[in-house]
Design a binder for these strands. Structure first.
Length: 453
RNA sequence: GGCCGGGUGGCGGAAUGGCUACGCAGAGGACUGCAAAUCCUUGAAUACCGGUUCGAUUCCGGUCCCGGCCUCCA
Protein backbone atom coordinates (compact mmCIF):
# COMPACT_ATOMS: atom_id res chain seq x y z
CA UNK A 1 0.00 0.00 0.00
CA UNK A 2 1.57 3.24 -1.17
CA UNK A 3 1.09 6.35 0.94
CA UNK A 4 2.00 9.81 -0.31
CA UNK A 5 1.79 13.31 1.09
CA UNK A 6 -0.56 15.29 -1.12
CA UNK A 7 0.14 19.02 -1.24
CA UNK A 8 -3.48 19.52 -2.16
CA UNK A 9 -4.89 18.07 1.08
CA UNK A 10 -1.73 18.64 3.14
CA UNK A 11 -2.13 15.10 4.39
CA UNK A 12 -0.61 11.72 3.83
CA UNK A 13 -3.06 9.79 1.67
CA UNK A 14 -3.35 6.22 0.46
CA UNK A 15 -2.52 6.17 -3.23
CA UNK A 16 -5.44 4.96 -5.33
CA UNK A 17 -4.86 5.50 -9.03
CA UNK A 18 -7.65 6.70 -11.29
CA UNK A 19 -7.08 3.64 -13.43
CA UNK A 20 -4.97 0.87 -11.84
CA UNK A 21 -4.28 -0.59 -15.27
CA UNK A 22 -2.55 2.57 -16.40
CA UNK A 23 -0.91 4.84 -13.81
CA UNK A 24 0.23 8.26 -14.97
CA UNK A 25 2.85 10.62 -13.56
CA UNK A 26 4.18 13.94 -14.82
CA UNK A 27 7.15 15.76 -13.34
CA UNK A 28 8.26 19.24 -14.32
CA UNK A 29 11.72 18.98 -15.80
CA UNK A 30 14.28 21.70 -16.37
CA UNK A 31 14.27 24.84 -18.42
CA UNK A 32 17.41 24.34 -20.46
CA UNK A 33 19.36 27.57 -20.30
CA UNK A 34 22.36 26.57 -18.20
CA UNK A 35 24.04 23.58 -16.57
CA UNK A 36 21.79 21.49 -14.33
CA UNK A 37 22.47 21.96 -10.64
CA UNK A 38 22.03 19.75 -7.62
CA UNK A 39 18.55 21.16 -7.08
CA UNK A 40 17.47 19.88 -10.50
CA UNK A 41 18.75 16.48 -9.53
CA UNK A 42 16.67 16.07 -6.39
CA UNK A 43 13.20 15.72 -7.96
CA UNK A 44 14.68 13.63 -10.76
CA UNK A 45 16.06 11.15 -8.22
CA UNK A 46 12.97 11.16 -5.99
CA UNK A 47 10.55 10.56 -8.83
CA UNK A 48 12.89 7.98 -10.31
CA UNK A 49 12.42 5.98 -7.12
CA UNK A 50 8.67 6.55 -7.15
CA UNK A 51 8.57 5.42 -10.78
CA UNK A 52 10.30 2.15 -9.88
CA UNK A 53 7.98 1.59 -6.95
CA UNK A 54 4.91 2.20 -9.11
CA UNK A 55 6.22 -0.05 -11.87
CA UNK A 56 6.62 -2.80 -9.34
CA UNK A 57 2.98 -2.51 -8.25
CA UNK A 58 1.06 -1.63 -11.40
CA UNK A 59 1.09 -3.29 -14.82
CA UNK A 60 1.58 -0.06 -16.74
CA UNK A 61 3.09 3.20 -15.53
CA UNK A 62 3.50 6.14 -17.84
CA UNK A 63 5.94 8.74 -16.63
CA UNK A 64 6.62 11.97 -18.49
CA UNK A 65 9.30 14.48 -17.55
CA UNK A 66 9.43 17.46 -19.85
CA UNK A 67 12.19 19.66 -21.19
CA UNK A 68 11.21 23.31 -21.41
CA UNK A 69 13.06 24.71 -24.39
CA UNK A 70 11.03 27.84 -24.97
CA UNK A 71 11.49 30.51 -22.36
CA UNK A 72 12.63 34.09 -22.04
CA UNK A 73 15.52 33.03 -19.83
CA UNK A 74 16.72 30.91 -22.74
CA UNK A 75 16.38 33.84 -25.12
CA UNK A 76 18.38 36.04 -22.78
CA UNK A 77 21.09 33.43 -22.33
CA UNK A 78 21.41 32.96 -26.08
CA UNK A 79 21.68 36.69 -26.63
CA UNK A 80 24.34 36.94 -23.98
CA UNK A 81 26.33 34.05 -25.47
CA UNK A 82 25.67 35.30 -29.01
CA UNK A 83 24.57 31.76 -29.63
CA UNK A 84 21.80 30.28 -31.74
CA UNK A 85 18.85 29.42 -29.52
CA UNK A 86 18.34 25.85 -30.65
CA UNK A 87 22.06 25.28 -30.28
CA UNK A 88 21.89 26.40 -26.71
CA UNK A 89 18.82 24.39 -25.76
CA UNK A 90 20.22 21.32 -27.49
CA UNK A 91 23.49 21.65 -25.63
CA UNK A 92 21.86 21.95 -22.23
CA UNK A 93 19.26 19.25 -22.90
CA UNK A 94 22.09 16.88 -23.67
CA UNK A 95 23.93 18.00 -20.55
CA UNK A 96 20.82 17.32 -18.50
CA UNK A 97 20.31 13.86 -19.95
CA UNK A 98 23.97 13.02 -19.30
CA UNK A 99 23.84 14.26 -15.74
CA UNK A 100 20.68 12.30 -15.06
CA UNK A 101 22.22 9.17 -16.50
CA UNK A 102 25.24 9.72 -14.30
CA UNK A 103 22.93 9.75 -11.29
CA UNK A 104 21.57 6.35 -12.25
CA UNK A 105 18.17 7.67 -13.25
CA UNK A 106 16.19 5.42 -15.55
CA UNK A 107 14.48 6.80 -18.65
CA UNK A 108 10.97 8.17 -18.20
CA UNK A 109 8.42 6.90 -20.68
CA UNK A 110 8.31 10.28 -22.42
CA UNK A 111 10.62 13.29 -22.42
CA UNK A 112 8.48 15.79 -24.34
CA UNK A 113 9.87 19.12 -25.51
CA UNK A 114 7.86 22.30 -25.80
CA UNK A 115 9.06 23.07 -29.32
CA UNK A 116 7.64 19.75 -30.53
CA UNK A 117 4.22 20.49 -29.08
CA UNK A 118 3.35 24.05 -30.08
CA UNK A 119 0.21 22.99 -31.93
CA UNK A 120 -1.18 21.27 -28.81
CA UNK A 121 -0.47 24.43 -26.87
CA UNK A 122 -2.29 26.57 -29.43
CA UNK A 123 -5.23 24.16 -29.35
CA UNK A 124 -5.53 24.43 -25.61
CA UNK A 125 -5.30 28.22 -25.62
CA UNK A 126 -7.97 28.39 -28.34
CA UNK A 127 -10.21 26.24 -26.22
CA UNK A 128 -9.70 28.50 -23.20
CA UNK A 129 -10.52 31.59 -25.29
CA UNK A 130 -13.58 29.87 -26.70
CA UNK A 131 -14.80 29.02 -23.19
CA UNK A 132 -14.20 32.58 -21.99
CA UNK A 133 -11.52 31.52 -19.55
CA UNK A 134 -8.97 33.55 -21.50
CA UNK A 135 -8.98 36.88 -23.30
CA UNK A 136 -6.89 38.66 -25.88
CA UNK A 137 -5.37 41.98 -24.90
CA UNK A 138 -2.53 43.92 -26.46
CA UNK A 139 -1.48 40.97 -28.67
CA UNK A 140 -1.29 38.74 -25.59
CA UNK A 141 -3.63 35.97 -24.56
CA UNK A 142 -4.25 35.98 -20.83
CA UNK A 143 -5.91 33.54 -18.49
CA UNK A 144 -8.82 35.12 -16.66
CA UNK A 145 -8.30 34.11 -13.06
CA UNK A 146 -11.73 35.37 -12.03
CA UNK A 147 -13.32 32.79 -14.32
CA UNK A 148 -11.94 30.04 -12.10
CA UNK A 149 -13.25 30.43 -8.55
CA UNK A 150 -11.02 27.65 -7.23
CA UNK A 151 -7.87 29.57 -8.13
CA UNK A 152 -5.47 29.25 -5.20
CA UNK A 153 -6.69 25.88 -3.99
CA UNK A 154 -3.34 24.20 -4.41
CA UNK A 155 -1.08 26.85 -2.97
CA UNK A 156 -3.69 27.91 -0.40
CA UNK A 157 -3.07 31.49 -1.42
CA UNK A 158 -5.94 33.94 -1.53
CA UNK A 159 -6.38 36.64 -4.11
CA UNK A 160 -6.05 39.46 -1.63
CA UNK A 161 -2.85 38.00 -0.18
CA UNK A 162 -1.35 37.78 -3.61
CA UNK A 163 -2.19 41.37 -4.36
CA UNK A 164 -0.82 42.68 -1.09
CA UNK A 165 2.40 40.76 -1.56
CA UNK A 166 2.89 41.64 -5.21
CA UNK A 167 6.44 42.74 -5.79
CA UNK A 168 6.15 43.21 -9.48
CA UNK A 169 4.45 45.81 -11.59
CA UNK A 170 1.20 44.65 -13.08
CA UNK A 171 0.87 44.95 -16.84
CA UNK A 172 -1.81 47.55 -17.53
CA UNK A 173 -3.72 45.36 -20.00
CA UNK A 174 -4.48 42.68 -17.39
CA UNK A 175 -8.08 42.56 -16.15
CA UNK A 176 -6.84 41.18 -12.86
CA UNK A 177 -3.33 41.41 -11.46
CA UNK A 178 -3.15 37.62 -11.10
CA UNK A 179 -4.04 36.93 -14.73
CA UNK A 180 -1.15 35.21 -16.42
CA UNK A 181 0.10 35.00 -19.97
CA UNK A 182 -0.80 32.05 -22.19
CA UNK A 183 0.61 33.47 -25.40
CA UNK A 184 2.76 36.48 -26.08
CA UNK A 185 3.97 38.21 -29.23
CA UNK A 186 7.52 37.65 -30.52
CA UNK A 187 9.59 40.18 -32.41
CA UNK A 188 11.75 39.07 -35.32
CA UNK A 189 14.75 38.25 -33.14
CA UNK A 190 12.74 36.04 -30.82
CA UNK A 191 11.51 32.51 -31.50
CA UNK A 192 7.90 32.51 -32.58
CA UNK A 193 5.19 30.46 -34.21
CA UNK A 194 2.19 31.63 -36.16
CA UNK A 195 -1.05 31.47 -34.24
CA UNK A 196 -4.59 32.88 -34.33
CA UNK A 197 -3.16 35.80 -32.29
CA UNK A 198 -0.22 36.47 -34.58
CA UNK A 199 3.38 35.34 -34.44
CA UNK A 200 4.31 34.58 -30.87
CA UNK A 201 5.35 32.09 -28.24
CA UNK A 202 3.71 30.36 -25.29
CA UNK A 203 3.82 31.72 -21.76
CA UNK A 204 5.43 29.76 -19.00
CA UNK A 205 2.72 27.45 -17.65
CA UNK A 206 0.66 26.36 -20.64
CA UNK A 207 3.27 23.98 -22.05
CA UNK A 208 2.94 21.52 -19.17
CA UNK A 209 -0.85 21.55 -19.35
CA UNK A 210 -0.77 20.88 -23.08
CA UNK A 211 1.86 18.14 -22.89
CA UNK A 212 0.14 16.39 -19.99
CA UNK A 213 -3.06 16.26 -22.04
CA UNK A 214 -1.28 15.00 -25.10
CA UNK A 215 0.97 12.38 -23.53
CA UNK A 216 -0.92 11.26 -20.44
CA UNK A 217 -4.53 12.40 -20.70
CA UNK A 218 -6.85 14.97 -19.15
CA UNK A 219 -6.46 13.75 -15.60
CA UNK A 220 -3.30 12.20 -14.21
CA UNK A 221 -2.50 10.41 -10.97
CA UNK A 222 0.64 12.18 -9.85
CA UNK A 223 2.00 15.60 -10.65
CA UNK A 224 5.37 16.38 -9.16
CA UNK A 225 8.15 18.90 -8.92
CA UNK A 226 10.02 21.17 -6.56
CA UNK A 227 8.22 23.09 -3.85
CA UNK A 228 8.90 26.35 -5.60
CA UNK A 229 6.61 25.26 -8.40
CA UNK A 230 3.52 25.12 -6.20
CA UNK A 231 2.93 28.77 -6.88
CA UNK A 232 2.51 30.03 -9.46
CA UNK A 233 3.40 27.22 -11.86
CA UNK A 234 1.21 24.39 -10.62
CA UNK A 235 -1.57 26.68 -9.52
CA UNK A 236 -1.72 28.05 -13.04
CA UNK A 237 -1.42 24.68 -14.73
CA UNK A 238 -4.27 23.44 -12.62
CA UNK A 239 -6.44 26.43 -13.55
CA UNK A 240 -5.77 26.06 -17.28
CA UNK A 241 -6.21 22.33 -17.47
CA UNK A 242 -9.26 22.20 -15.27
CA UNK A 243 -10.97 24.88 -17.33
CA UNK A 244 -9.92 23.54 -20.73
CA UNK A 245 -10.66 19.87 -20.03
CA UNK A 246 -13.49 20.21 -17.56
CA UNK A 247 -11.83 17.59 -15.34
CA UNK A 248 -9.29 17.64 -12.55
CA UNK A 249 -5.66 17.81 -13.60
CA UNK A 250 -4.02 15.64 -10.97
CA UNK A 251 -5.14 13.51 -8.07
CA UNK A 252 -1.90 13.68 -6.09
CA UNK A 253 0.40 16.70 -6.01
CA UNK A 254 3.85 15.76 -4.77
CA UNK A 255 6.52 18.38 -4.06
CA UNK A 256 10.09 17.98 -2.91
CA UNK A 257 11.95 20.36 -0.61
CA UNK A 258 14.99 22.39 -1.59
CA UNK A 259 18.61 21.59 -1.54
CA UNK A 260 20.18 24.31 0.55
CA UNK A 261 23.83 25.24 0.73
CA UNK A 262 24.97 25.86 4.28
CA UNK A 263 21.28 26.24 5.19
CA UNK A 264 20.63 28.88 2.52
CA UNK A 265 18.65 28.37 -0.65
CA UNK A 266 20.89 28.16 -3.66
CA UNK A 267 20.56 31.24 -5.79
CA UNK A 268 22.45 33.10 -8.42
CA UNK A 269 22.72 36.23 -6.33
CA UNK A 270 24.45 34.34 -3.51
CA UNK A 271 26.58 32.52 -6.07
CA UNK A 272 26.14 29.25 -4.20
CA UNK A 273 24.66 27.03 -6.88
CA UNK A 274 26.18 23.56 -7.01
CA UNK A 275 26.50 22.54 -10.65
CA UNK A 276 26.41 18.79 -11.25
CA UNK A 277 29.04 19.08 -13.91
CA UNK A 278 31.49 20.61 -11.41
CA UNK A 279 30.86 17.83 -8.93
CA UNK A 280 31.45 15.18 -11.57
CA UNK A 281 35.24 15.44 -11.59
CA UNK A 282 35.50 14.83 -7.88
CA UNK A 283 32.61 12.56 -7.06
CA UNK A 284 30.71 9.84 -8.79
CA UNK A 285 27.04 10.11 -9.58
CA UNK A 286 26.19 7.35 -7.18
CA UNK A 287 27.64 9.29 -4.25
CA UNK A 288 25.67 12.35 -5.26
CA UNK A 289 22.55 10.24 -5.50
CA UNK A 290 23.18 8.71 -2.08
CA UNK A 291 23.64 12.17 -0.59
CA UNK A 292 20.34 13.27 -2.12
CA UNK A 293 18.57 10.36 -0.46
CA UNK A 294 19.95 11.05 3.00
CA UNK A 295 17.08 13.36 3.91
CA UNK A 296 13.36 12.79 3.47
CA UNK A 297 12.25 14.36 0.19
CA UNK A 298 9.92 16.90 1.79
CA UNK A 299 12.58 18.20 4.16
CA UNK A 300 15.25 20.63 3.11
CA UNK A 301 18.51 18.89 2.27
CA UNK A 302 21.54 20.82 3.34
CA UNK A 303 24.63 20.60 1.19
CA UNK A 304 27.85 21.39 3.03
CA UNK A 305 31.48 20.33 3.29
CA UNK A 306 30.72 16.99 4.86
CA UNK A 307 27.73 15.94 2.74
CA UNK A 308 29.73 14.26 0.00
CA UNK A 309 32.36 12.82 2.33
CA UNK A 310 29.62 11.19 4.33
CA UNK A 311 28.02 9.72 1.21
CA UNK A 312 31.31 8.41 -0.17
CA UNK A 313 32.29 6.77 3.10
CA UNK A 314 28.89 5.18 3.50
CA UNK A 315 28.95 3.73 0.00
CA UNK A 316 32.52 2.53 0.44
CA UNK A 317 31.47 0.59 3.52
CA UNK A 318 28.46 -0.93 1.79
CA UNK A 319 30.49 -1.91 -1.27
CA UNK A 320 33.15 -3.40 0.99
CA UNK A 321 30.54 -5.69 2.47
CA UNK A 322 29.50 -6.70 -1.04
CA UNK A 323 33.13 -7.29 -1.92
CA UNK A 324 33.49 -9.59 1.07
CA UNK A 325 30.62 -11.58 -0.38
CA UNK A 326 31.47 -11.20 -4.03
CA UNK A 327 31.36 -14.93 -4.77
CA UNK A 328 27.94 -15.43 -3.23
CA UNK A 329 25.19 -15.90 -5.82
CA UNK A 330 22.18 -13.78 -4.88
CA UNK A 331 18.85 -15.52 -4.55
CA UNK A 332 15.85 -13.78 -6.11
CA UNK A 333 13.98 -11.93 -3.41
CA UNK A 334 10.41 -10.75 -2.87
CA UNK A 335 9.29 -7.61 -1.11
CA UNK A 336 11.80 -6.14 1.33
CA UNK A 337 11.90 -3.67 4.20
CA UNK A 338 13.30 -0.97 1.97
CA UNK A 339 10.22 -1.18 -0.21
CA UNK A 340 8.02 -0.91 2.85
CA UNK A 341 9.89 2.23 3.87
CA UNK A 342 9.58 3.67 0.40
CA UNK A 343 5.87 2.92 0.26
CA UNK A 344 5.58 5.08 3.36
CA UNK A 345 5.78 8.44 1.57
CA UNK A 346 9.18 7.61 0.06
CA UNK A 347 11.00 7.57 3.39
CA UNK A 348 14.52 7.22 2.02
CA UNK A 349 16.41 7.77 5.33
CA UNK A 350 14.49 4.92 6.88
CA UNK A 351 15.08 2.86 3.75
CA UNK A 352 18.81 3.45 4.03
CA UNK A 353 18.68 2.36 7.67
CA UNK A 354 16.99 -0.88 6.55
CA UNK A 355 19.60 -1.33 3.86
CA UNK A 356 22.35 -1.12 6.49
CA UNK A 357 20.54 -3.64 8.59
CA UNK A 358 20.47 -6.06 5.66
CA UNK A 359 24.13 -5.39 4.91
CA UNK A 360 25.07 -6.16 8.51
CA UNK A 361 23.07 -9.39 8.36
CA UNK A 362 24.92 -10.36 5.21
CA UNK A 363 28.24 -9.69 6.85
CA UNK A 364 27.34 -11.72 9.91
CA UNK A 365 25.74 -14.68 8.15
CA UNK A 366 27.85 -17.84 8.24
CA UNK A 367 26.15 -20.30 5.90
CA UNK A 368 26.38 -19.67 2.18
CA UNK A 369 22.71 -20.50 1.67
CA UNK A 370 21.76 -17.77 4.13
CA UNK A 371 24.25 -15.34 2.61
CA UNK A 372 22.79 -16.03 -0.79
CA UNK A 373 19.33 -15.20 0.45
CA UNK A 374 20.39 -12.00 2.20
CA UNK A 375 22.48 -10.85 -0.74
CA UNK A 376 19.39 -11.19 -2.92
CA UNK A 377 17.48 -8.99 -0.52
CA UNK A 378 20.28 -6.43 -0.39
CA UNK A 379 20.50 -6.19 -4.17
CA UNK A 380 16.75 -5.83 -4.54
CA UNK A 381 16.69 -3.13 -1.88
CA UNK A 382 19.51 -1.22 -3.48
CA UNK A 383 17.85 -1.49 -6.89
CA UNK A 384 14.93 0.61 -5.69
CA UNK A 385 17.26 3.17 -4.18
CA UNK A 386 19.36 3.08 -7.35
CA UNK A 387 22.67 2.34 -5.67
CA UNK A 388 25.13 -0.57 -5.25
CA UNK A 389 24.55 -1.88 -8.76
CA UNK A 390 28.22 -1.81 -9.78
CA UNK A 391 30.87 -4.43 -9.32
CA UNK A 392 32.27 -3.77 -5.83
CA UNK A 393 35.85 -3.71 -7.06
CA UNK A 394 35.00 -1.34 -9.86
CA UNK A 395 33.52 1.03 -7.32
CA UNK A 396 36.24 0.70 -4.72
CA UNK A 397 39.08 1.08 -7.19
CA UNK A 398 37.45 4.14 -8.72
CA UNK A 399 38.65 2.99 -12.13
CA UNK A 400 36.84 5.97 -13.57
CA UNK A 401 38.95 8.50 -11.65
CA UNK A 402 42.56 8.12 -12.68
CA UNK A 403 45.96 8.88 -11.16
CA UNK A 404 48.46 5.97 -11.42
CA UNK A 405 47.61 3.34 -13.99
CA UNK A 406 46.42 -0.02 -12.79
CA UNK A 407 49.60 -1.58 -14.14
CA UNK A 408 51.83 0.74 -12.13
CA UNK A 409 49.84 0.06 -9.01
CA UNK A 410 49.95 -3.68 -9.42
CA UNK A 411 53.71 -3.51 -9.98
CA UNK A 412 54.24 -1.58 -6.77
CA UNK A 413 52.04 -3.98 -4.87
CA UNK A 414 54.04 -6.90 -6.19
CA UNK A 415 57.29 -5.24 -5.05
CA UNK A 416 55.79 -4.64 -1.64
CA UNK A 417 54.61 -8.21 -1.27
CA UNK A 418 58.11 -9.39 -2.03
CA UNK A 419 59.54 -7.02 0.57
CA UNK A 420 57.03 -8.29 3.12
CA UNK A 421 57.93 -11.86 2.35
CA UNK A 422 61.56 -11.01 3.08
CA UNK A 423 60.50 -9.25 6.28
CA UNK A 424 61.80 -6.01 4.86
CA UNK A 425 58.98 -4.04 6.44
CA UNK A 426 60.72 -0.70 6.05
CA UNK A 427 60.67 -1.09 2.29
CA UNK A 428 57.09 -2.41 2.40
CA UNK A 429 55.91 0.62 4.34
CA UNK A 430 57.78 2.96 2.02
CA UNK A 431 55.91 1.56 -0.97
CA UNK A 432 52.62 1.75 0.85
CA UNK A 433 53.26 5.39 1.70
CA UNK A 434 54.18 6.08 -1.90
CA UNK A 435 50.87 4.57 -3.01
CA UNK A 436 48.99 6.48 -0.35
CA UNK A 437 50.54 9.73 -1.53
CA UNK A 438 49.08 8.94 -4.92
CA UNK A 439 45.67 8.41 -3.42
CA UNK A 440 45.86 4.63 -3.39
CA UNK A 441 45.08 2.80 -0.18
CA UNK A 442 45.68 -0.91 0.12
CA UNK A 443 44.58 -3.67 2.35
CA UNK A 444 46.27 -6.98 2.93
CA UNK A 445 43.97 -9.94 2.88
CA UNK A 446 44.69 -13.59 3.37
CA UNK A 447 46.35 -14.30 0.07
CA UNK A 448 46.16 -11.07 -1.83
CA UNK A 449 46.45 -7.32 -1.47
CA UNK A 450 43.51 -5.25 -2.61
CA UNK A 451 43.75 -1.59 -3.44
CA UNK A 452 41.35 1.29 -3.72
CA UNK A 453 41.66 4.83 -4.92
C1' G B 1 2.74 42.65 5.70
C1' G B 2 0.08 37.70 4.23
C1' C B 3 0.83 32.33 3.89
C1' C B 4 3.83 27.88 4.88
C1' G B 5 7.71 24.62 6.90
C1' G B 6 11.30 23.65 10.68
C1' G B 7 14.50 23.72 15.41
C1' U B 8 16.69 16.03 17.67
C1' G B 9 24.07 13.81 19.76
C1' G B 10 30.46 16.56 16.95
C1' C B 11 27.92 16.31 11.92
C1' G B 12 23.86 14.33 8.77
C1' G B 13 19.07 12.51 9.71
C1' A B 14 14.38 9.24 10.96
C1' A B 15 10.63 8.01 14.39
C1' U B 16 7.47 8.22 18.50
C1' G B 17 2.13 9.83 24.23
C1' G B 18 6.13 5.33 27.81
C1' C B 19 13.73 1.56 27.10
C1' U B 20 15.28 8.28 21.56
C1' A B 21 16.52 4.61 14.69
C1' C B 22 20.33 4.65 11.32
C1' G B 23 24.76 6.63 9.04
C1' C B 24 29.41 9.51 9.15
C1' A B 25 33.10 11.03 12.49
C1' G B 26 35.26 9.59 17.66
C1' A B 27 36.89 5.99 21.67
C1' G B 28 38.23 0.82 23.36
C1' G B 29 38.99 -4.30 21.94
C1' A B 30 39.67 -8.65 18.43
C1' C B 31 42.53 -9.28 13.94
C1' U B 32 47.46 -7.53 11.58
C1' G B 33 54.78 -7.34 11.11
C1' C B 34 52.38 -2.44 11.12
C1' A B 35 48.14 -0.75 8.62
C1' A B 36 43.45 -1.01 6.13
C1' A B 37 38.87 -3.42 5.94
C1' U B 38 35.65 -6.20 8.89
C1' C B 39 33.59 -7.79 13.57
C1' C B 40 32.49 -6.78 18.85
C1' U B 41 31.89 -2.98 22.54
C1' U B 42 31.12 2.14 23.58
C1' G B 43 30.31 7.73 24.90
C1' A B 44 26.99 11.46 22.97
C1' A B 45 20.82 14.92 21.45
C1' U B 46 14.91 16.13 21.31
C1' A B 47 15.74 25.34 21.29
C1' C B 48 13.23 27.87 25.67
C1' C B 49 8.82 28.65 29.06
C1' G B 50 4.13 27.08 30.60
C1' G B 51 -0.24 23.60 30.13
C1' U B 52 -2.79 18.66 29.43
C1' U B 53 -1.19 13.66 31.19
C1' C B 54 0.54 8.53 35.67
C1' G B 55 4.09 9.79 31.75
C1' A B 56 5.68 14.80 26.39
C1' U B 57 10.82 14.87 22.38
C1' U B 58 5.84 13.76 20.39
C1' C B 59 -0.44 16.94 21.91
C1' C B 60 -1.93 22.40 23.23
C1' G B 61 -0.48 27.70 24.18
C1' G B 62 3.44 31.26 24.31
C1' U B 63 8.71 32.97 23.48
C1' C B 64 13.15 32.96 20.71
C1' C B 65 15.67 31.45 16.36
C1' C B 66 16.15 29.53 11.18
C1' G B 67 14.35 28.65 6.28
C1' G B 68 10.82 28.98 2.17
C1' C B 69 6.61 31.05 -0.87
C1' C B 70 3.85 35.64 -2.29
C1' U B 71 8.75 37.62 -8.76
C1' C B 72 12.11 33.64 -12.65
C1' C B 73 13.64 29.18 -10.00
C1' A B 74 13.81 21.93 -8.83
Amino acid sequence: MLKLFNTFSKKIEIFKPINPERVTMYVCGPTVYNHPHIGNARPAVIFDILFKILKDIYPEVIYARNITDVDDKINDAAKKNKENISNLTQRYSTAYEEDMKNLGIIQPTFIPKVTDNISSIIDMISKLVELNHAYVANNHVLFDVESFPKYGEISKLKQKDLISGARIEVAPYKKNSSDFVLWKPSDNDTPGWSSPWGRGRPGWHIECSAMIKKFLGNSIDIHGGGQDLIFPHHENENAQSTCANNSILAKYWIHNGFVTFNKKKMSKSLDNIIILNDLKNKYRGESIRFALLSAHYRQPLDWNDTTMMNAENSLNNLYSILLNNVDIKPKISRQTNVEKNLLNDINTPEAIASLYSTARDLQKAKKNSLKSEIKGILLRESYFLGILQKEPNEWLQKSDLLSLTDKEINNLIRQRSLARKNKNFQEADRIRKNLLDNGISIKDEKDETRWTR
